[in-house]
């Protein structure tokens, strides 16, 4: 069965349930949006799927990707890409090196690697930026490099953890379009955590809010503005 599937996933922080018994299938090319206020468990759920759950959060259930159970694998073996609110380009590497960092080892020849990086830059509208210091790029440019970097690793699924929250309105629209266009083209199942309904609308996404009642309410109290 292809796509990203969760079976009876439960999450709890310090004994307080965040998610209880979530079953979910996100098919290739589909976008699902986890909606909810801060602190409800969105990020923890994504971390669980990606393989980097923080200590102190307990979880159970199963995570399947394209018919393989992946929850026992270390993060780097799961082939699940992730984008955060910040671009997290590695500050010690140039733009081109950041992209090349993501290329799988199977792309062995130096010429091939260079070509793939060039192509990704062209795709992001940043042709000729390979030697640039990431710190000299604009926020929108950096975000696009981060997306291209995630794609170059040839993921089988993509997680978006408030990936658009830090951008201003105009940039957010164009970057959203950029991300979903590429994710659909690559037929990736996309699971998006957001507190902004516009993100879900833009992706035409299925909206989920699987939060345990208490946790959402508490989150609401913490951040009345969201």
């Amino acid at each position: 069965m292809s796509g990203l599937r969760l079976v009876d996933v439960r999450l709890a922080a310090a004994g307080r349930p965040l998610v209880s018994g979530l079953d979910l299938l996100v098919e290739p090319g589909e976008v699902a949006a986890l909606m909810g206020p801060s602190g409800c468990g969105k990020s923890s759920l994504l971390a669980l799927i990606g393989g980097s759950l923080a200590p102190g959060i307990t979880a159970s259930g199963e995570v399947w990707l394209n018919g393989t159970r992946v929850d026992g694998l270390p993060a780097e073996k799961r082939r699940i890409g992730i984008l955060f609110q910040d671009d997290l380009l590695f500050p010690h590497l140039s733009v081109g090196e950041n992209l090349a960092f993501a290329l799988p080892r199977t792309v062995a020849r130096r010429e091939d690697r260079r070509r793939r990086v060039e192509a990704a830059l062209v795709e992001a509208g940043l042709a000729g930026f390979a030697e640039r210091d990431p710190a000299t790029l604009s926020g929108g440019q950096r975000a696009r490099v981060a997306m291209m970097r995630a794609l170059l690793a040839e993921p089988k699924a993509l997680l978006l953890d408030e990936a658009f929250a830090a951008l201003d309105t105009a940039l957010r629209q164009s970057f959203r379009a950029f991300v979903f266009e590429h994710a659909r083209a690559a037929r990736l199942p996309v699971l998006m955590a957001t507190h902004d309904p516009a993100d879900a609308e833009a992706a035409d996404a299925r909206v989920l809010a699987p939060w345990a009642a208490g946790s959402a309410a508490e989150g609401e109290r913490k951040r009345p503005d969201s």
């Binding site: 990606g50 980097s52 270390p74 993060a75 082939r79 699940i80 955060f84 590695f90 997680l159």
Partner: peptide, 27 residues
């Protein structure tokens, strides 16, 4: 150090040692 640097690198398919040597140490 922002732990999301390491998470990003893991998501890009890099193992613990690679992340240590190529991401954390240089930063």
């Amino acid at each position: 150090l922002d732990p999301r640097f390491a998470r990003t690198a893991h998501a890009l398919g890099k193992g613990e040692l690679t992340v240590l040597v190529r991401v954390k140490l240089p930063i």
